[in-house]
């Protein structure tokens, strides 16, 4: 079916002043903001309610693994934005190359995450150990799921970009990836570094 598919004219119109694909991506980001926001708001409420006791739990998360992951995601975001820059001048090969690097860094992120999960669970901090850990696994799990989704979509975009097709998609997947990065920028202090409170 996909060979006979032509996008309708509506897709190429720009009444709002920006390309449709990017506008759609922004709406996706907006709806994700409220999904993660709802989780973070719930967590912050419980965190404030259980104050010092949760601070003790939070001190058992692996600060340096989290910091490494922040570094990894920031770097991958840097590659994603460079890919966008390359795609804009029409250099699909370079964009695809940079996107592949982004995907690889996403893989590194997941490996670090897997190491963290394993060692936490082995140390007795499984999802049911405490409500703090339930939140920890739910929030980072949901975030990890978004990382995986981003990597898969980016794979398709990179494949097309290498052939010079659909280069505008590089920017859209970039926006999504930066959003995933920003979620992590907030999850990192919430779960890892604010244990002194």
């Amino acid at each position: 079916m996909s060979e006979t598919y032509h996008p309708p004219l509506a897709t190429s119109r720009k009444s709002a002043g920006l390309p449709t694909a990017r506008l759609g991506t922004w709406w996706v980001v907006a709806s994700e903001v409220v999904i993660f926001g709802g989780l973070v708001v719930s967590f912050v409420m419980y965190r404030m309610r259980h104050g010092e006791i949760w601070a003790d739990q939070a001190s058992h998360t692996k600060l340096y693994a989290g910091a490494l992951n922040t570094f990894v995601l920031l770097t991958s975001s840097y590659f994603a934005v460079c890919a966008h820059k390359a795609a804009e001048v029409g250099d699909g090969k370079k964009a695809a190359n940079l996107l592949v690097r982004t995907i690889l860094l996403g893989g590194v992120f997941l490996c670090v995450k897997a190491y963290e999960y394993t060692s936490e669970i082995l140390a007795g901090y499984g999802p049911k150990a405490d409500l703090f850990w339930s939140f920890y696994y739910t929030a980072t799990g949901l975030h990890g799921f978004h990382v995986v989704a981003g990597m898969v979509i980016m794979g398709f975009v990179a494949k097309d970009a290498a052939k010079g097709k659909f280069l505008h998609r590089v920017e859209c997947i970039g926006i999504y990836w930066h959003f995933v990065d920003i979620v992590w920028i907030f999850l990192f202090p919430l779960f890892y570094i604010a244990s002194g409170l």
Binding site: S12, P19, T20, A21, Y78, V81, K85, E88, H168
Partner: peptide
């Protein structure tokens, strides 16, 4: 039509 180029800051 689907892109609009712009200046890039120093990433």
């Amino acid at each position: 039509k689907n892109t609009d180029e712009h200046k890039h800051p120093d990433y």
